[in-house]
Structure formats: structure tokens, C-alpha cells
Design a binder for these strands. Structure first.
Length: 568
RNA sequence: GCGCUCGUAGCUCAACUGGAUAGAGCAUCGGCCUUCUAAGCCGAGGGUUGAAGGUUCGAGUCCUUCCGGGCGCGCCA
């Protein structure tokens, strides 16, 4: 149940009845504890429009609204806020064992989530991590709310770079099953491509052959793609990312459809030739010197571009996948590109007005010094090495904190904590601007970090372990009385509204902020309210509250693709 | 040149269609372990939200101008 939405709806109805026009109540979580659990901000604006006294209007709304089943008390405060206090009965009823803390959306829809999308010519590096984990978290949240999620890993597997790679492999006879080697070959091939004009020509011919379906070239290419995808899958596995081979819908998959895209644009009179290239010009895009800005869909040599592929993808997602929402997670440099693609797609009818096309951009990963994140010698940081280091650092830490645990268990904790720390540090700040990657900060494991949340979870588990608690034997009820208990209870009930917000805005950091708040409140509760030594009924109530906290932490972290351990 | 984006405490970040005294963590300083794990809790200091105007009951949030950073702007993706 979305408590906030329920209160908002009823207060909005009451407010609208009082004002005689549609007036939103604007209910939010209260900004301070003394203002209650939620607050309504909409009275002042409504009173303003009616030129009436906001406090009087608030009184009328409170007299009108029916919230007795949820709310204990409604106060008018300040210039015309309504402070909302949830009733103890309501809290207890919603937290009872049989009540789900997450309920599915009333109107589920089909959402395509386009994320990760690495270039298969290279090993995955830090530049791929943001798209991969942010997109995956949003996909999981949408799915958890009952939406039909179609993951699309739009991997780069086509184009000149593959031509030169295949040519290099064929000509040198180089052979390997390991992607790291292939990356070496890629570097060598690129060097020859730049230095040797004949080699470059042969490479371009290879691309033509590839696109034309020449069997030997296709076989070579496929072998390479397989190795590369296996490498990606291994990393997805380590990262707890839910992408599988079935989600791969590569650039090459649209190859046969590209001429149709061009033809469709031509038929609709949207195509214009400019300097030999096929372009779509739209009035809303201007380039240098106020010149119209083209979206080039076919090069003067007849080749297609990523704009063409993306247009084909939009059409596919509309016509074949029947998506109502399409969410793209790519870096911020592509904002113009996607604005253009979306505009052309709409104009050409590849997407209708009912299909929401959303680009969710994010900034670059920067090092501590504010410059692009690189290795000491200026190289690209490989994702696999990044994760290795995270685990190694976490292992040192867990050894230092808990040396009595066996090595295997410490390794496992280090894996869960290290990977979690890297992911959480990124997910917790979804800035559209750049992101500062700082080992010391994320692996300090203090404050708003994954380990803090994971530690809160282990503390709950520890209570159950210590008390030899059989969860089934509990009454499954809770009656929060202490302030720390009450706060915890109210926060637990906010899980649903937070998930819906993440789904709506595609910002996983809302979930992180929420989980951190929940964990902090649990820590305070843990200090203030003894559980195992409390008298019978209170003990049962607190144990059930603990259970709900653990469930929510595990569930919430799971949606972020972060695991938990029983002790650490 | 045009466009997009960002600028909040020493550092990294929050602040939900404009709401109450701008909040956290790190760092600094001071308390709390014979009682469920101290990777914790409690407290203190730290701010002209880049600058100046404007809109209004109310602006970190909206508008204008300026300053500073990042990115993009015809056949790469």
C-alpha cells in the first residue's frame, strides 16, 4: 500500500470539494518529526487562488476529509500546512505478518530498459559500470512493482572495428579464447589500421563482407562475439546484474531493417540529401551559425550509422515489443543524439504519442583528482580489476574487524561487501553530472555505504541467532510504542512509495537514501530498545519489527543488486 | 559562436510537480563497550546554496543577466 498516495488522494478530494476546483493536497513525508509523519503543502496554494485564509481552508479540509482508518491526528501548522500523524492501529495493521510491504501496480505496463550495451570489441571497463548497474536497479524495481520489463542489451557488435579485428586475426593467425588477448589484438589491429592503408582497405572490405553475410567472416565474427559476451556475462554475474544472453539485442540485429528505415523516411518525405548523405532536418535543432542540424541516417558511401540503428530499435520496441515506456541509460554526451532520435521517431511514426521515450543520462566517472578515472599509468581501468581490488580491500578490512572467522567465510563476506560497496557508492548518487570515484570513501565502510546497510542486516540476524528465535512461533504482530519503534514502523511503510518513485523517475538513489534512513533508524532502535530482554509481548512485537526491517533491507538491497550476509 | 548540463559545509553528496530553522556521511573535537556485533550510538563546531536582479505568502528549486567547470554541435558510437 502506498500510504502517501492514499492520504494524498483523500486530502486532495476534500480540498477540491472545499475549493470547488481541482486542488492537489501535495502530501509529502514530514520534513521534521514534530511535523508528524506526513505533511500536506497544497492548502496555501489553493487558498491563494481563492483569495481566502489558508488556515481557515485547512480547518474546512480537516472537517471534510475521512482519514480515521489511517490517521490519528491532523494538525494545522504554520501558514497553513496540515501535519499528519498516522494512528498506532494503522501501523500495527499494516505491519502484521500477512500484509505485504510491496504490492504490485494497479496498471502494469510493458517497459523496455536499454542498458549496459558495451562495445564487444573491448573488455568491459569502468565506463560501463554506471549504465549497467543503474539500469539494472531500475529494471528490477519496475519488475518488483509488477511491470512487464524487457531488458535490451544493445551491445556494439558491428562496424569498422570488427572488420579490422577479423582481418588482423585472419592475417596473423592469432588465436585465443580469452578476451584479454582479444583486446591486445584489437590494439594491434587498430595500430595497423591507422598505419597501413592497405590493411585499412582490407578491413573495410571485411565489414562489407560481414554485412553481406560471407560465411567465413561471419564464423570468425561470431566466435569473437561469443568470447566477448561470455566475458560480459561473467562480470554481470559478479555484479549481481540480471542481464542474460537472452537480453542481448545487438546492433547487428537491426542490420536487415536499416534499408526499411531509410525507405520509410523517404516515403514520408522526411529525407533530404546533403553533401551526398541522407539526412532528416528538423526545425527544432540548430547547429553552428544557426544552420539546420541534420540527423544523418545514411552516409554518402551508403553505410548506416548508429542513428539509423537506434531508429530501427525504437520501431522494433514499438511494433514488436509493444512497449509503453522505453528507458535508455547512457552517458550524458548522448543527450542531443537521443533528443534527435526521439524527435525523428515520433515524426516518422516509429513511436506513437502513447509510448514514452526516456533518456536517463549520467555523468562520467572521475578519479579523486577530478580527472577521468584512469590507472596510474593512464590506462583504462578494467571492470574486472576494479572488482578484484574492491574484494581485496574488503578482505583486509573484514580480517581486521573479525579475525576469528574462517578464511572461506571472510572471502565470501569480502566478496559481498566489496562488490556492494562499489555498486552502492555509484547508485547512491545519481547525479546527471560527473561522479567522483574514491576508494577511501566507499571502502571506509562508514556512513551511507553498502556495508553500513549490510551490517544493519547482520545485527538483526544476530538478534535472532542469539535468542534462538523461531520466526514461525512469533505472533507476527507488532505494537510500536517507543518513539524509536514508531519511527521505524512509519519508515517501513514508506517502502512502497519509494519504489514507485524510483520507477517513475528512474533514480535508484531514492531507494539508497531510503534504505540508509531505515538502517539508521534501526541502529537507533537497537541502541534504545532492548529486544531479547524485553518482557514477553514487547519482545514479540520488537522481534517482529526486526523481522520486517531485515526483510526490507534484504529486499531493497536485492533490488540494487547487492547481497547480504548473515554475519560480517 | 550556439546548445545542453552542473555549481549547496574543508571533501563527497541529499533536499521528491516551489514549502516550515538547507540535511547526511567523511574529516575535526567531545562523550558511550562486564548487557542483543563499537563496520555502532549520542553530542559540538562548520553555510550569504557561484554572483546580482526578478517572480510570490514562501526560492537551493522558477525567470533574466553575469562568472566558473564539464559536455555536445554532418557522414565514429
Amino acid at each position: 500500500m502506498n500510504v502517501r498516495a492514499a492520504i494524498d488522494q483523500r486530502l486532495s478530494e476534500a480540498l477540491s470539494a472545499c475549493t470547488g476546483r481541482n486542488s492537489p493536497a501535495l502530501v509529502q513525508p514530514a520534513s521534521k518529526p514534530e511535523f508528524g509523519d506526513y505533511q500536506a503543502n497544497g492548502i496555501m496554494a489553493a487558498a491563494k487562488r481563492l483569495k481566502t485564509n489558508p488556515r481557515e481552508l485547512a480547518t474546512a479540509v480537516i472537517d471534510t476529509v475521512a482519514l480515521d482508518d489511517i490517521v490519528e491526528q491532523l494538525d494545522i501548522a504554520g501558514p497553513g500546512f496540515i501535519n499528519i500523524f498516522l494512528s498506532a492501529e494503522f501501523l500495527a495493521a499494516r505491519l502484521a505478518r500477512e500484509q505485504p510491504l510491496v504490492s504490485p501496480a494497479q496498471h502494469p505496463y510493458t517497459a523496455v530498459v536499454d542498458y549496459s550495451s558495451p562495445n564487444l570489441a573491448k573488455e568491459m571497463h569502468v565506463g560501463h559500470i554506471r549504465s549497467t548497474i543503474i539500469g539494472d536497479a531500475v529494471a528490477k524495481v519496475l519488475e518488483c512493482l509488477g511491470h512487464n520489463v524487457i531488458r535490451q542489451n544493445h551491445v556494439g557488435d558491428w562496424g569498422t572495428q570488427f572488420g579490422m579485428l577479423i582481418t588482423y586475426l585472419t592475417e596473423t593467425g592469432a588465436n585465443s579464447q580469452v578476451l584479454e588477448d582479444l583486446e591486445e589484438f584489437y590494439r594491434a589491429a587498430k595500430q595497423r589500421f591507422d598505419a597501413d592503408a592497405d590493411f585499412a582497405t582490407r578491413s573495410r572490405l571485411a565489414v562489407v563482407g560481414l554485412q553481406g553475410g560471407q560465411p567465413e567472416l561471419r564464423r570468425q565474427w561470431q566466435r569473437f562475439i561469443d568470447i566477448s559476451l561470455n566475458h560480459c556475462q561473467a562480470l554481470y554475474g559478479r555484479l549481481g546484474v540480471s542481464l542474460s544472453r537472452e537480453d542481448v539485442h545487438a546492433e547487428s540485429a537491426y542490420n536487415d531493417d536499416l534499408p526499411n528505415v531509410i525507405e520509410s523516411l523517404r516515403e514520408q518525405g522526411l529525407l533530404e540529401e546533403s553533401d551526398g548523405a541522407q539526412c532528416v532536418f528538423l526545425d527544432e535543432f540548430k547547429g553552428k551559425d544557426d544552420q539546420p542540424l541534420p540527423v544523418i541516417v545514411q552516409k554518402s558511401d551508403g553505410g548506416y550509422l548508429y542513428a539509423t540503428t537506434d531508429l530501427a530499435a525504437v520501431r522494433h520496441r514499438h511494433n514488436q515489443l509493444n512497449a509503453q515506456r522505453v528507458l535508455y541509460f547512457t552517458d550524458a554526451r548522448q543527450v542531443l543524439h537521443f533528443k534527435q532520435i526521439f524527435a525523428v521517431a515520433r515524426k516518422a511514426g516509429f513511436a506513437d504519442a502513447a509510448m514514452s521515450l526516456e533518456h536517463h543520462p549520467f555523468g562520467n566517472m572521475l578519479g579523486k583528482d577530478g580527472k577521468p578515472f584512469k590507472t596510474r599509468d593512464g590506462g583504462v581501468v578494467k571492470l574486472a580489476e576494479l572488482l578484484d581490488e574492491a574484494e581485496a580491500r574488503a578482505f583486509d578490512l573484514v580480517t581486521q574487524k573479525n579475525s576469528e572467522l574462517g578464511e572461506d567465510e571472510r572471502r565470501e563476506i569480502a566478496r559481498v561487501v566489496g562488490i556492494g560497496a562499489v555498486k552502492y557508492a555509484d547508485l547512491a548518487k545519481n547525479r546527471t553530472s560527473d561522479y567522483h570515484f574514491d576508494w577511501d570513501q566507499m571502502l571506509a565502510f562508514e556512513g551511507n555505504t553498502a556495508p553500513y546497510l549490510q551490517y544493519a542486516y547482520t545485527r538483526v540476524q544476530s538478534v535472532f541467532r542469539r535468542g534462538n528465535i523461531d520466526v514461525e512461533s512469533l505472533t507476527g504482530e507488532t505494537a510500536p510504542s517507543e518513539p524509536a519503534e514508531r519511527t521505524l514502523a512509519v519508515t517501513l511503510l514508506r517502502f512502497q512509495e519509494v519504489l514507485e518513485q524510483v520507477a517513475a523517475d528512474a533514480y535508484p538513489h531514492y531507494l539508497c537514501t531510503y534504505l540508509y534512513e531505515l538502517a539508521s533508524q534501526f541502529m537507533r532502535f537497537y541502541e534504545a530498545c532492548p529486544v531479547l530482554t524485553a518482557p514477553g509481548k514487547v519482545r514479540d512485537s520488537r522481534l517482529h519489527l526486526c523481522l520486517r526491517v531485515a526483510e526490507t533491507l534484504k529486499n531493497g538491497l536485492g533490488l540494487l543488486g547487492i547481497e547480504t550476509v548473515e554475519r560480517m
